[in-house]
Design a protein around this nucleic acid. Structure first.
Lengths: 168, 168
DNA sequence: ATAAACTTTCAATAATTATTGAAAGTTTAA
DNA sequence: TTAAACTTTCAATAATTATTGAAAGTTTAT
């Protein structure tokens, strides 16, 4: 396969995966583009490479910065802003985990906590089933939360290969 | 909090979480409803509880069966079909992991594999960066795949509490 | 056979989400 | 200052995704 075709395929696949996981397709594509680019790119170059508008490019780049996945760079003597992606897959994983934990897991934990204060008749099957399900999900969510916490604290990756030990 | 209010809140929260992770909001809500229901419910009851149409209920229930999260039940002497959700959180987790692995991870692994056959100039930074990123992501994806594989094989859950050991 | 009870389908429609593009805003150099 | 270079905003529009509801299909009992 040729490099040019491979790049397109990678960008497309990354965009599709993103959209399946609730991440804007264009955002995933811009990230993919920067991931395989050795140099930082300008907004113009990104617009051109992905055939997207200036407004879309600007908002998407801002979101990616908000996710901690890319950063702005400035070149001496130039007004233009350049964008560069961290290429370290471990950093990327941690960053995504960190953001989703904050944006999604924590709000859910809060709700589950409130729901565990529900009052009712201990003999009522409706009540018992509700409490049991909420409590079980709460336990799972707390475990996931603690695991992510540990993952975020890890400065380097023991990730490669060691994850397998979990279920031994 | 009252049980009725708590149920609504749980269904709403579950639906929101689902939609943030690329799962149809209604599907997540129907699953939530069945998760907290001690008895199997009919299509009519589900339509009524969530104010959704017959068509929507039917398709959503079919999808949930496709994800292996609920099953049909028949009661003696009745024509109606009843739907019941597995309440075991470990089973649910495994089932979701299994489906997403099959539907999303495996296709991505296939693409990454194809992309690793790219040919080009080893001195070209564009080529080098592409290969490095694809290769790193491939390694991560393979690890995730193997981890899920192990998780799926585990008959019971060592999950509770033990996940934390990964990053020790 | 037929009709009631129930389920499925799918074209039309609604709701949501993403994108555009031009105007407004900002920064820098002269 | 001012004007060119560049970035940001956001109302309008497009694209995508979800939902409806009525007709068609199926099964069962008689």
């Amino acid at each position: 396969m040729e490099l040019a075709a491979a790049k397109l395929k990678f960008i497309e696949a990354w965009g599709k995966l993103g959209s399946e996981w609730g991440i804007n397709r264009t955002m995933a594509q811009v990230h993919a583009l920067l991931l395989i680019s050795p140099e930082a790119l300008t907004t113009e170059e990104i617009m051109e490479a992905l055939s997207i508008s200036r407004g879309n490019a600007n908002m998407t780049l801002r979101d990616l910065i908000g996710w901690g996945l890319i950063e702005k760079q400035h070149k001496a003597g130039e007004r233009k802003e350049y964008f560069f992606a961290d290429k370290d897959v471990w950093n990327i994983s941690r960053q995504v985990a960190k953001e989703r934990k904050k944006r999604e897991l924590e709000p859910v934990l809060k709700v589950l906590n409130e729901l565990s204060t529900v009052v009712g008749d201990e003999k009522d099957p409706e009540f018992k089933t509700f409490k049991k399900s909420v409590s079980d999900i709460n336990k799972l969510a707390l475990n996931v939360d603690k695991t992510l916490e540990t993952m975020l604290k890890a400065e380097e990756s023991w990730f490669w290969g060691s994850v397998l030990k979990v279920f031994k």
